[in-house]
Design a protein around this nucleic acid. Structure first.
Lengths: 157, 157
DNA sequence: CTTGACCTTCCAGTGGATGGAATCTCTATC
DNA sequence: GATAGAGATTCCATCCACTGGAAGGTCAAG
């Protein structure tokens, strides 16, 4: 099978398939004319890769999964470990994005969205810093960011 | 102010600040010795950029936001439009990830995770295709992916 | 004078492809 | 046999937003 057929058949662009060969995920044979010749085994691997990538596994994880796929004596615990790591990563990402979403939604809702310049979104972006660990008031005097420091340092040279 | 101080003060790595200069987001002055000299205005811009990036806005969006930030006659509707587009993108991403998470969670839960090779995760990955649009049975005979086609095409040269 | 912190530039690499150019190779048709 | 067009090949560049590291200049303290 030529690359175009494989592409159509496993849903991966030909470019991607060449790329996968390049990074060693598949090793299709070559014909005399230089064309790649994909065997059933290559097709299976590519379909496997396509599915794994669509589930968000990284190429590195795909490599591991692929070697487990081809290992008859694999332990399902190894597969599960990779999947769980990935799942945890996804869930952490979801939480991050939900926090972002909440913040943005609040800002967007509070913004009038008219032709005047006043805007809570801008106010948030321009605000000094998200004081997660608010410093004691006295320590501000020695901050590198206040005006005095700025002038001093500007004048230093 | 030197880049190191700016870095500490606005929380962006020096490398990032240089990069932001490189792509034209800030234009700090230069001293005679070649060192960058950041003024208050640059500090504000960098802090703004740091916050905007931490909210997930792309550099391109940051560029737009920054020019709105410096435009006294801006319309808050322009700001809001950018933020809403971004919010929508985040929410779409969350949905995607939640679907992934659900699929993966199901697979992980069904996997024994022992020393035997049987594994629902592998079974899923190795499965032909996620038949979102299941083809009529008869059409499989002409698929490029069945054995006959494979052999034919392999034998063609 | 030396040390070490800080600054500079430039180049390369990350991940995972994707776009495009220039150049074969095959097949079909005239 | 000529030719057109599809499909294959390679290689190089590009995307995003940095980040790492090398090689070298500058500055303040001891």
């Amino acid at each position: 099978m030529n690359i175009g057929d494989v592409s159509e058949c496993c849903g991966l662009p030909a470019k991607t398939i060449r790329y996968y060969e390049d990074i060693g995920l598949v090793q299709p044979a070559r014909r005399e004319n230089g064309y790649r010749e994909f065997a059933r085994r290559d097709l299976h691997k590519l379909a496997f890769l396509g599915r794994a990538r669509s589930l968000g596994f990284s190429i590195k994880e795909c490599r591991s999964l692929l070697s487990l796929y081809e290992d008859r004596k694999r332990s399902s615990s190894d597969v599960k470990a990779i999947a769980r790591t990935h799942l945890d990563r996804i869930d952490r990402k979801i939480e991050e994005l939900q926090a972002l979403s909440a913040t943005l939604r609040d800002l967007v809702e509070r913004c009038q969205g008219d032709d005047r310049p006043e805007c809570p979104i801008m106010d948030d972006l321009a605000r000094p810093a998200p004081n997660e660990h608010p410093a004691p008031l006295m320590s501000r005097a020695s901050s590198k960011c206040d005006n005095a420091s700025l002038e001093n340092r500007s004048a230093r040279m």
